[in-house]
Design a binder for these strands. Structure first.
Lengths: 193, 193
DNA sequence: ATTGAAATATGATGAGCGTCATATTCAATA
DNA sequence: TATTGAATATGACGCTCATCATATTTCAAT
């Protein structure tokens, strides 16, 4: 009876993807349920068949999130690039100046972390778990053997990348923006070796 | 006739301060004009005697901003601390774990940069100018003589500090949070020498 | 003391919001 | 094919919001 589980999952995922895209772009309070459902090619009322509330949607988005952050993590974990330092390769990818484009707000950490810090504990917990996973992947993708020191370097590198991209997206001066991204990349390079 | 210029200026500044505090804490869309004016001990209608719109208020806040960022900049520029590296001293101050407290969202760069990146060009211009000033002050507070390399190191250090604090504020795990701040500080130390 | 322009307060408007009650449509099952 | 429970659509609710028109208060200049 009713729709197939596959269709339901697909719809839920579509809503999550559009919600993520719009919330990264316009912020949590800058997007309405109606706008999200419209982007998912549904009507506003049906939303509550998939989520209990807007807040719960944000929690799911912060935790699952089909976004660029996860792409980077997969890149870090892939063993296709082990010839050289994978962490540096990922950072080069991440700090690409074209990411500064307003339409390219693809990384939740660089676009919505401040919304997360204002959200409830559940959203923060999901975000924290994702961050921890990313930090581990980053550390393992760096040079040298596993150590507290390497973990710390990975944390600093992450902060540099995410902070750099966040700030670059807020600057109007393209020259300054690119200088910032370049400086961040250099910093990651020296941290990774 | 009417109120003294001093009183007007004081009121305008009070509104700006409360707006800054509330917007850093709850986000641009999370605060109403009414809430801001109430915090400034005025009523909502009088707002438009001081600002044309909410957007213009945000522009003024991003540009002037009586916040912790400016305190840090003044610390960087002060020559009271020239015995050792002022940049490291400022970073130690900035990356204090107690800043993670939700009530302590004092730095515009670590609390509102994502709102700025979603705002109009005027707000971004003011923010950019403030960032540039801060970056220059940071570079001058670092070890070694002036150079492009030192400027780049200052940019990376800024991204690390601001990114680190932003992320730490979004994490629920205090241990991870402190490890992150510590790793960022270590990174700034090595960048500053 | 009077004045008057500007700051502040009051109240209203129209739009948009999250949520929910209800109706309709769908497709897997019997 | 008929049934049925869930997904989706429609429409409405109460509320909050930014903004503005209007009234009131303030106090420096006269």
């Amino acid at each position: 009876m009713g729709y197939s589980q596959e269709h339901i999952n697909k719809t839920r995922r579509k809503i999550l993807e559009e919600a993520g895209r719009l919330m990264r772009q316009r912020g949590y309070h800058g997007v309405s349920i109606g706008a999200i459902m419209e982007a998912a090619e549904l009507t506003h009322g049906g939303f509550y068949a998939h989520f209990d509330s807007k807040e719960q949607l944000f929690e799911a988005m912060a935790a699952e999130d089909f976004d660029f952050t996860n792409q980077v993590r997969r890149l870090l974990e892939s063993d296709k690039f082990d010839r050289t330092n994978r962490a540096v390769f990922a950072a080069e990818n991440y700090l690409d100046p074209s990411r500064t484009d307003k339409m390219w707000r693809a990384c939740t950490m660089a676009a919505s972390s401040q919304d997360v810090s204002r959200a409830g504990e559940r959203a923060q917990e999901g975000f924290t778990e994702r961050f921890r996973t990313l930090a581990n992947a980053f550390s393992e993708a760096m040079g040298g053997r596993a150590s507290k020191k390497r973990d710390a370097a990975a944390l600093a590198a992450l902060a540099t990348c995410i902070g750099g991209l966040t700030l670059a997206q807020a600057l109007t001066d393209d020259e300054l923006s690119e200088a910032l991204l370049g400086a961040c990349l250099d910093n990651v390079k020296s941290l990774a070796t």
